[in-house]
């Protein structure tokens, strides 16, 4: 287990993070949720950037409190709103990383920067959003880290570059013993990349599932009032009122396909599941 959060709590005024989460070796784990749901706070707890009020955080099998600078060399980090100082250039950052990371691969870093057209002598503050996103990810992947913690790493990228960087992440995972924890607003990225997903809302993990299971077993059923009244509801998780009747979230798509052929069944995807969980909870959780 490369990350293990057990009943971690962090209070900020009205907001409380209460989170348990695991990232297994060889896995790409996604953390999804709306803005302000607690994703960044959970990431900060893992990275030791905040002091938690309760619970336990283990990273790379070690209590976060016992983490040393050498242990931190095993982490590659992308933060949504923070990076190297904008006055520095890629050349400067390479020199800094060379001094900090014993396994920093300068050639790999420069090769990748050249491949993605990043100028090495231009201050980072003059980079476009997309260039900055590429730089941050390449820097995180350039020192043989075992765990990548990536907070919104593909934000601001066009679909072509996004796909290239997602491929970089997949290639990164080809070596044994590694894992990635990633958050993103782009659910299609996560569907194609992640092995499992956590959904966080109001500081609490609402749901954890393997991505394959979501895509194969979850579905949105569209039913009218009459169909709803007659159907077996034991596998319905959430219900949302719609103009035509109800949208229902189930984890047992096949059951309804087999027994209710007249019902409209839409294949589940992350956006739908998130929407149902967020909206339906506001209306009524069955």
């Amino acid at each position: 287990m490369l990350v293990k959060m057990e009943n971690v709590e962090k209070r900020y005024g009205d907001f409380t993070l209460q989170c348990s989460l695991e990232v297994r070796e060889g896995y790409i784990t996604g953390l999804i949720g709306a803005n302000g749901a607690g994703k960044s706070t959970a990431f900060k707890a893992i990275l030791g950037l905040i002091h938690t009020d309760a619970g336990r955080v283990e990273v790379l099998g070690k209590n976060r409190e016992d983490f040393t600078a050498a242990d931190k060399e095993e982490l590659g980090v992308v933060l949504a709103e923070s990076s190297f100082n904008g006055m520095l250039t890629i050349k400067d950052t390479a020199a800094i990383m060379e001094a900090l990371y014993r396994k920093f691969d300068k050639d790999y870093f420069y090769d990748k920067c050249a491949r993605y057209g990043l100028p090495v002598e231009k201050p980072l503050k003059d980079f476009s959003t997309g260039m900055n996103a590429k730089f941050k990810l390449l820097a995180a992947m350039s020192h043989e880290a075992r765990l990548l913690v990536l907070d919104e790493p593909t934000v601001g990228l066009d679909s072509v570059v996004r796909r290239e960087l997602l491929d970089e992440m997949r290639r990164y995972m080809e070596k044994d013993g590694r894992a990635i924890l990633i958050s993103s607003h782009i659910s299609s990225d996560l569907e194609g990349l992640c092995d499992d997903l956590y959904f966080i809302q109001d500081g609490r993990i609402q749901f954890h599932e393997d991505t394959d299971v979501i895509l194969s077993d979850y579905a949105i059923l569209k039913v009218n009032q009459k169909q709803y009244g007659e159907m077996d509801k034991q596998y319905i998780e959430y219900r949302m009122k719609e103009p035509f009747g109800y949208a229902l979230l189930t984890k047992q798509k096949q059951f309804y396909l087999d027994n209710y052929p007249g019902i409209a069944v839409e294949k589940g995807n992350i956006d739908d599941v998130m929407l149902m969980m967020t909206r339906a909870e506001r209306e009524k959780k069955l």
Binding site: S82, S83, M87
Partner: peptide
């Protein structure tokens, strides 16, 4: 300048 663009958070994720 370390505080510029909230760089401190990132600096504290480095092996420091």
């Amino acid at each position: 300048t370390d505080e510029y663009n909230k760089s401190m958070a990132f600096l504290m994720t480095l092996p420091v």
